[in-house]
Computed example of a mutant assay.
Amino acid sequence: MTQNQQAGRRGSPGAVSRWVQRRMNARTNTRIRRGRGSFMGMDVLILHTVGRRSGQPRQSPVAWFADGEDARLIVASGGGSRHPDWYLNLMGHPDQASIELPGHDAEPVTPHRLDGADREQAWQRITAAQPRYAKYQGKSDREYPVIRLTLR
């Protein structure tokens, strides 16, 4: 079995899919930096992480939900059976995370994965604001992590 076939069996995106995703992310990041921070009716920020294996800086547009004045909630959905790379990078190097809101410079954040009642309360607020997340979750065999990003 070739390496590409093995990657396909694990649910990994192919080279073309990764290229398209990088291009879309770059365009969305440009829009956010120009002050247009919404996508498909959701508020979007740029999540700055460090690659867990490469150590290289990464920037991913991610939908967010308000959680008080100095915190944002994000959901690691990724639309598939595995966690998105940005989530793995965030959890791999949590001390190097920052967020960039539309038209603002990046600010350092502390990520905290919510569990139990905290996750359930946040999930209810998220799905009330964006019911599509409940629909996505219903199609997945994994529980989507909910992460609170608190400004440092």
Rank of each mutant, 00 (worst) to 15 (best):
13 P>A: 08
56 Q>Y: 07
24 M>K: 09
118 D>P: 03
82 R>M: 12
126 I>A: 00
53 R>I: 05
139 K>P: 01
20 V>H: 06
50 V>N: 05
36 R>A: 10
62 V>A: 09
48 H>W: 06
149 L>I: 01
10 R>V: 04
86 W>K: 06
76 A>M: 07
53 R>M: 08
49 T>P: 06
39 F>Q: 15
18 R>C: 01
34 R>F: 01
105 D>K: 10
104 H>W: 05
15 A>C: 02
98 S>A: 15
25 N>R: 06
149 L>F: 00
75 V>K: 02
77 S>W: 01
60 S>T: 15
139 K>C: 00
134 A>Q: 03
15 A>V: 04
23 R>V: 06
33 R>W: 04
9 R>D: 14
29 N>E: 13
33 R>H: 07
45 L>E: 08
95 D>L: 08
130 Q>G: 02
17 S>Q: 15
41 G>F: 06
31 R>P: 06
41 G>T: 10
43 D>Q: 11
102 P>D: 09
79 G>W: 04
102 P>W: 12
81 S>T: 12
114 L>G: 14
41 G>L: 08
47 L>W: 00
39 F>S: 14
152 R>K: 14
136 Y>W: 12
73 L>N: 07
34 R>A: 14
135 K>H: 09
104 H>I: 00
100 E>F: 02
5 Q>Y: 00
26 A>V: 06
58 R>Y: 06
76 A>Q: 09
19 W>D: 11
116 G>P: 07
6 Q>H: 07
125 R>F: 04
70 D>K: 10
137 Q>M: 00
36 R>V: 04
133 Y>H: 01
95 D>M: 11
45 L>P: 00
55 G>T: 05
133 Y>V: 02
110 T>R: 15
112 H>P: 03
53 R>Y: 05
146 V>T: 05
58 R>C: 07
137 Q>E: 08
140 S>R: 11
121 Q>E: 15
116 G>A: 13
142 R>P: 06
55 G>M: 09
114 L>Y: 08
59 Q>D: 12
16 V>M: 04
56 Q>L: 11
